[in-house]
Design a binder for these strands. Sequence first.
RNA 1: CGGAGAGUAGCGCAGAGGCUAGCGCGCUUGGUUUGGGACCAAGAGGUCGCCGGUUCAAAUCCGGCCUCUCCGACCA
Length: 487
Amino acid sequence: MDEGSSLMAEAITPRSQDFSQWYTDVVQRAGLADYTPVRGCMVIKPYGYALWENIQKALDQRFKATGHENAYFPLFIPHSFIEKEAGHVEGFSPQLAIVTHGGGEKLDEPLVVRPTSEAIIGHLYSKWIKSYRDLPVLINQWCNVVRWEMRTRLFLRTMEFLWQEGHTAHATYEEAEEEARRMLSIYADFAEKEAAIPVIQGRKSESEKFPGAFMTYTIEAMMGDRKALQSATSHNLGQNFAKAFDIQYLDQSNQLQHCWTTSWGLSTRVVGAIVMAHGDDQGLILPPRLAPIQVVIVPIHKNEDEKAQVMAVVEQIKVLLGEAIRFRVDDREGYTAGWKFNEWELRGVPLRIEIGPKDVAKEQVVLARRDVPGKEGKRFIPQAELAREVPKLLEMIQQELFERAQKFREEHTHEPKSYEEFKSAVEDGFALAFWCGDAACEKAIQEETKATNRCVPLDQSNAKSSSGKCIRCGKPANEKAIFARAY
RNA sequence: CGGAGAGUAGCGCAGAGGCUAGCGCGCUUGGUUUGGGACCAAGAGGUCGCCGGUUCAAAUCCGGCCUCUCCGACCA
């Protein structure tokens, strides 16, 4: 076949050549999502949805383990509710989708399609909470939300997206703060253990925080193009929403008190994070713990005789892998083995088992690691060892993906000593630098470098020793912040 | 929402006023194949993004709209 034509028709844009295009290609070609006729709204295809379901499982389990329950609140919110909290309405009004008609008639009061549910949930909490004995309330919901967006990208920013939003109410500031921090650490744990993405836990600046929040916490991750992606957030809402929605309780001394509330969310955006944190020129690389298919078995045979032999061994392998491993046998006819290899690599399956006549004869299989391309990632192992080796190898891949991402982030995180160094640092990745806390300084940095303040890391062990001067204005500073170009 | 580009078969593209709109890949059927994107043969598949206008004649020219991509401003 002459070069090119058939190969080129299959190829995705190389990551190094055009990261954005690579991302868009991979998401579609791997079967995660597709466009729809509605601007900014995507369809999450079965493979992408299976990935999301695994994300849900991993998170939901953590939420339940920390005492939270799931519930469901309505999609429509009376417009007036959104307006009750000043910061909230200001922040969200440009992004609202508003229903003005229903049943063929103009509505007396327009309904907002929820951009988030603080307002409606606040209203209900005020009904449900009367006494300190009712607290804390720890509820989560899995749902869709709508935010009108100017510029959209698959998973990263769509007008409608799926997420979970936790909403809790507490008796004291300290409890709410503890809750917000606990959920942040749960997100961090999820990101690192399940998605194999190292994250920085931090506090958002005044200008970056959630509309209506007292304090916003974030986990920030570095993508393969060295840009930052906020992967989840957790808010200590103080008493802002409690006051706006009259969420009050009688304390033990019969005094009426406002609650302290929190909210926290993680969206389908993390699917994009997984794509961009781990993928390569061949396509997706999924972390084994979240991969819809952890192991793909590719039988190889030339004739019916061989097929019978190979498939008999495949049956044995299926038993060896057992219930715990998510595997698929790719026994499709009419595709060559090589074609299948490429296909499953594009789709990011962490581990491949190749089994052909030669392996049957030697009672072995070929194990190929997705994260280690080519021959280097292949090894022969005796069939008898599969039950032991496969889980071990999946665990190893999980760990090494994390370590690779962490090393990458470290290599592209700098601690500039001057503003000049700072400028080149944010060209390369993250800059960790003293910042005076002034919003004007933050804004100037953004205008001058295109880098935004991602967060003030909770872990300031880096900052303790040095005396602090703001990287831009030189005024005294007692904290370091992460600056980076961001999604 | 501003700037730039794109939309012709499932995908990638050619056609730039004139006969029945092509090519590659993919798809279907049959056969040979399968250890890194196989091959042969025969087929199927199109209101040229949508609406309107100009013209004897529009995929092609003009206007409006829709969607996508990239770059900005805003955001999970």
